[in-house]
Each structure stands twice: as C-alpha cells, then as structure tokens.
Simulated scan of single mutants.
Amino acid sequence: MSNIAYFPKPHIDQRPGKRERTKTANRQAILDAAREVFGELGYDAATVRDIIRRTGLASGTFYNYYKSKEEVFDALADDGARRFRPLLRAESEKATDFPSFLRGAVLAYFEFLAKEQESWRLDRPVGEAFPHARSTPELTAVFDEVREAFARVLAHDNAPPVDLDYLTSACIAIARELGDKMLERRPVDTGAAADFAVKLILGGVPALPKL
C-alpha cells in the first residue's frame, strides 16, 4: 500500500479572508455610526453625509454597501430583529399556552426595545415621527416565528381555528405601537406596557385597567 495514504491532509483555513473581514468591519462601522447619528440628530435631520463623517470612511466606500439612509435604517432594523429572534425562540420553547407565550414574547420585545432604542428616543427632536423599517429578511423571519408559535400553542389549547396571518399581524402591530409610546414615557415601564398589551389582545377594551 502506498505511503501516501498516511500523509496528513493539508490544513484548510476556514477563516474569512482579509477582504471579507474588511467588508464586515466597514459595514459594522457604518451601522454603528448611523445609530449614533440618528440618535443625536433624529432620523429626519440626519443625512448620509453625517453618517459618512462619523465613520471616517470615504463616501465611495459607503455607497458600496448602502444607497441611502433608508437602506441603512433597514439594515439596523434587520440587525435588531436578528438579535431578538433567539429571545423570541426561548419564549416559544418554554410557553405552555397562548397567554404565557404572548406575555413572555411581548415583555421580551419591550425589554429589548428599551435597551436598544432608548438613547434614540431620549435625543431625537420633539415631535419627530419614529420611522418603521420596511420588510426585511429578518423581520419576515420574526413574523414567521411568531406565527408558528401561535399555531403550536393554540393547537395545544384546543382553540378554535383562527386566521393566523391576521392574528400575528395584529399582535405585532399592537406591540410595535405600544412599544413606541412606552419609550416616550419616563420612567420606561416594560412590565406595565406588557400587561396592557396582553390584556388588550386577550380581553379587548373591557379587560383593560380603569384609570
């Protein structure tokens, strides 16, 4: 038998190359700068030029990755959704019924939102409308995970069939709008906001606490 069979296989470096690492670093620098600029100036007042100045990169480098501040904002939203998904998945795995998943998921979202975006809310110009990102792959994945979790816990509860697309859309819309208002208040009370959202979804207006 040939001794070649005993030669060790050559080591293949699986690490990304220098060019790929540079691209990753540039993209992250743009996102970090955009987060700071949007927080300091507000989304409406911020410009691509402001973001580029903060990165220290050439303008041509910026446009290699993003065409506009809208695309950068969508990328920030996509990044946030990607980091939120493990928290959502954890709530889905430990939920025993629809109310427990709803409460856990909404509270996890509000706590994540407060941690991620409170600085923007504190500094943005008074009266500026907070933009919502367009549909992105990670935001779509969040929708799909919520829908799948709803299907599982409702089946476990032997609940009557419902339109899962409408239910998921309605719950996400309520959480998103309440989350926006929650961050405008001081102090930010994620628990109270979650209680309000869950009671509204489960019981409608009659179930809400009286002022």
Rank of each mutant, 00 (worst) to 15 (best):
Glu36Lys: 13
Gly17Cys: 02
Ser2Ala: 11
Glu111Arg: 11
Glu184Lys: 13
Tyr166His: 13
Pro209His: 13
Gly127Phe: 04
Met1Leu: 12
Asp74Tyr: 01
Phe110Tyr: 10
Phe112Asp: 14
Asp32Cys: 13
Leu31Lys: 03
Tyr63Glu: 01
Arg27Trp: 06
Phe73Glu: 09
Gly127His: 09
Ile4Arg: 15
Asp44Ile: 13
Thr168Pro: 06
Glu128Gln: 04
Phe130Trp: 09
Ala197Phe: 00
Asp123Trp: 02
Val72Met: 09
Phe73Val: 02
His156Thr: 15
Arg15Asp: 13
Val146Trp: 13
Gly80His: 10
Leu31Cys: 01
Leu211Lys: 01
Pro206Phe: 04
Arg176Ser: 01
Phe143Gln: 12
Phe38Tyr: 07
Val146Pro: 00
Glu138Pro: 03
Ser100Ala: 12
Ala141Gly: 03
Asn64Pro: 02
Ser119Gly: 06
Leu102Arg: 03
Ala193Arg: 00
Gly17Ile: 04
Tyr166Pro: 01
Asp97Glu: 07
Ser119Lys: 14
Thr61Gly: 06
Arg121Gly: 02
Leu57Ala: 06
Ala159Gly: 01
Ile172Phe: 07
Leu139Glu: 07
Asp79Trp: 02
Phe112Ile: 00
Thr22Trp: 10
Leu202His: 08
Gly56Asn: 14
Asn26Ala: 09
Tyr65Lys: 01
Thr22Glu: 15
Leu211Glu: 12
Ile52Gln: 03
His156Val: 12
Ser169Asn: 00
Ala155Asn: 10
Ala194Ile: 00
Pro206Trp: 12
Ala108Ile: 11
Asp79Ala: 15
Gly203Cys: 11
Ala46Leu: 09
Glu145Phe: 02
Val126Phe: 10
Leu183Ser: 07
Thr96Trp: 06
Pro86Leu: 11
Arg21Leu: 13
Asp74Cys: 06
Ala75His: 08
Pro187Asp: 09
Thr190Tyr: 02
Ser68Tyr: 10
Asp13Gly: 04
Leu122Met: 11
Asp165Cys: 00
Arg124Phe: 07
Thr47Pro: 05
Ala170Asp: 13
Leu41Ser: 04
Phe110Ser: 05
Ala29Val: 11
Pro209Tyr: 15
Asp144Cys: 10
Pro161Gln: 03
Asp144Val: 06
Ile52His: 03
His156Ala: 13
Tyr43Asp: 08
Tyr63Val: 05
Glu40Asn: 09
Ala25Glu: 14
Tyr166Ala: 09
Ser92Lys: 11
Lys69Arg: 09
Leu31Ile: 11
Ile201Leu: 08
His11Cys: 08
Ser100Gly: 06
Ala108Cys: 02
Thr55Cys: 00
Pro161Arg: 05
Arg124Ile: 05
Tyr63Phe: 12
Ile4Gln: 15
Ile51Arg: 08
Asn3Ala: 06
Ala108Met: 03
Gln117Asp: 14
Pro8Glu: 14
Thr136Asn: 00
Val37Lys: 13
Glu138Gln: 12
Val106Leu: 10
Gly42Gln: 04
Thr136Trp: 07
Cys171Arg: 07
Tyr65Gly: 03
Ala151Ser: 11
Ala108Leu: 04
Leu208Ile: 11
Glu145Asp: 12
Phe143Thr: 14
